[in-house]
């Protein structure tokens, strides 16, 4: 969908054609849901947060100034909404140490011991929401660094640095977790 088509749909919605909004929802629901899921790690909550974000976007559509793409503006709302949900989540401050224990239990019984994916997923917990989202947006390759900055609320000139640092931290954490696992064998 081109930017002009998006703006035409927005005009229709603002003119009172509520069902035109369904086109925007269909277009951005999966991407928005993916971003919310990266922050919340819970499908049901991520879906609820994404729906909330669409409802908020609808009610504030007249405030969308069209200086950026609708998607950039909308993903910013998804990010804020998901972060609010995260704050409300019980046990949100689960430490990486606790994650390790659960993972080891799983790895002993169900998973392959060299399954690095599980360890990286656990290591992701050390990153803050903005860094996690920036990494996701960067690897999905649909947004420029400036747009990633706008969505995550980072300074445009620091996005690349933050993405580099986040990957460094993940690599360090993965090494630590693998060493720790090796000691338990």
């Amino acid at each position: 969908m081109t930017t002009e088509q998006e703006f035409a749909i927005i005009d229709q919605v603002l003119a009172g054609h509520q069902f035109a909004y369904a086109e925007l929802v269909d277009q951005y629901k999966n991407y928005g849901f993916t971003l919310a899921l990266k922050i919340l790690n819970d499908r049901a909550e991520a879906e609820e947060a994404t729906q909330d974000a669409f409802v908020k976007a609808y009610h504030h559509l007249k405030d969308f100034n069209r200086n950026s793409k609708f998607s950039t503006w909308f993903y910013r709302i998804v990010f804020n909404t998901a972060v609010s949900y995260k704050r409300k989540q019980k046990g949100v401050l689960q430490s990486i140490e606790k994650t390790d224990v659960r993972l080891y239990a799983e790895s002993q019984s169900q998973l392959e011991k060299d399954d690095k994916k599980k360890f990286i997923t656990a290591a992701m917990a050390i990153l803050n929401e903005a860094d996690r989202l920036a990494l996701t947006l960067f690897y999905l390759k649909e947004h420029s660094l400036e747009e990633i900055a706008e969505i995550t609320g980072m300074q445009p000139n620091t996005v690349k640095v933050r993405i580099h640092r986040a990957r460094q931290r993940l690599a360090d954490e993965l090494t630590r977790l693998l060493k720790k696992e090796a000691l338990t064998l």
Partner: peptide, 12 residues
């Protein structure tokens, strides 16, 4: 990731 099937309907 994909949302559930009736996602759009529920938003509307």
């Amino acid at each position: 990731e994909e949302t559930s099937k009736n996602f759009t309907e529920r938003v509307i």
